[in-house]
Amino acid sequence: MTDARTPGEFDPPRPAVEAIVDLALAEDAPWGDLSSEASIPASATATARLSSRVDGVLAGGLALATAFRRADAGIEVQLLLPDGAPLTPGAEVAVVRGPARGILTGERVALNLAQRLSGVATLTRAYVDAVAGTPARIVDTRKTTPGLRVLEKAAVRAGGAHNHRHSLSDAVMLKDNHLAVLAAEGLGIAEAIRTVRSRIPHTTTLEVEVDRVDQIEAVLDGGADIVLLDNFALADLVAAVALIDGRALVEASGGVSLDTVRAIAETGVDIISVGALTHSAPALDLGLDISVR
């Protein structure tokens, strides 16, 4: 398939990808690619093959193809694997054909995006695998690279997890600092939640963060849809799940790592939000080798 393919299961909106890629290309080659233009004949063509050098999970196929296509409209990108596909060392991911100058100009942006997004998908898959067999759902957070959120959240989906809210506009989430301001205004937790509920559409989800078990009843009394348990010890998570008893969805956050996520899932929480999926994922080692034809 080429970059004009039918949209993949995990593809973010194409206009958003094009906008991100255009900014990246403008950053990388603001006045053109001096190296390629000075050394490579305009008529030269090439074929490049993108392969994985390690085990992992692929993501960012659309971004990869878009980077080359926006560098030169004459470039054809054949994606050999879909986002979400497992990778092994030597696995061929894509073939890029066309003007050699354009391939060289687009190479770094294409690789930066594909490596970054595949790294997110790979780390995400590790978390998803770690909680397999439990009812817990792994979700991301807004701790994303500025400007890349739509791509990184798509990579999380490619890794097998789910997205939390995309932005501050998507849902109401009252965190500790919101509650601190409301308390300074003389509002208790339950009253504050009811006030917020009266101001938002009935279709809007309302989530409230707590950091102690003794806050939970007030949150439930206020009518929260989701209770976020922040940095709870395992024993407190168990107690909180029992106390909530299905009256709201239960999300755990804070202190989540690959070493702890299984035990957190086994407490019975519904959702585990993991900022590390996007803020701590290492880039996956992908390589592009070019041969002139």
Rank of each mutant, 00 (worst) to 15 (best):
S167A: 14
S167E: 13
L168I: 13
L168P: 08
S169G: 12
A171E: 12
V172S: 09
V172Y: 08
V172Q: 05
M173T: 10
M173N: 08
K175I: 01
K175S: 07
D176K: 06
D176A: 12
N177K: 09
N177M: 02
N177G: 06
H178K: 09
H178R: 00
L179W: 05
L179R: 11
L179C: 02
L179A: 03
A180Y: 13
V181E: 05
V181S: 11
V181L: 14
L182M: 15
A183Y: 03
A184W: 06
A184K: 13
A184R: 15
A184E: 13
E185G: 14
E185H: 14
G186Q: 02
G186P: 07
L187H: 08
L187F: 10
G188Q: 08
I189F: 00
A190V: 09
E191M: 06
E191D: 15
E191A: 14
E191N: 04
I193E: 00
I193L: 00
I193K: 10
I193W: 00
I193Q: 06
R194F: 07
V196P: 03
R197Q: 06
R197F: 01
R199Q: 15
R199I: 09
I200L: 14
I200Q: 12
P201K: 08
P201R: 12
P201I: 10
H202Q: 13
T203D: 14
T204W: 07
T204C: 10
T205E: 10
T205G: 07
T205F: 08
L206V: 14
L206R: 03
L206M: 12
E207T: 01
V208E: 01
V208W: 05
R212Q: 15
D214C: 12
D214V: 13
D214H: 13
D214T: 14
Q215G: 07
Q215P: 11
Q215N: 11
I216E: 04
I216G: 03
I216L: 08
E217D: 15
E217H: 09
A218S: 13
A218T: 04
V219Q: 00
V219G: 01
V219W: 06
L220F: 09
L220W: 06
D221T: 14
D221K: 11
G222R: 04
G223V: 03
G223L: 05
G223W: 05
G223D: 04
A224V: 02
A224P: 03
D225E: 05
D225T: 07
I226K: 02
V227H: 06
V227R: 04
V227G: 03
V227S: 06
L228R: 07
L228D: 02
L228Y: 06
L228T: 04
L228K: 06
L229W: 02
L229F: 07
L229C: 07
D230S: 06
D230K: 04
N231V: 03
F232H: 02
F232K: 05
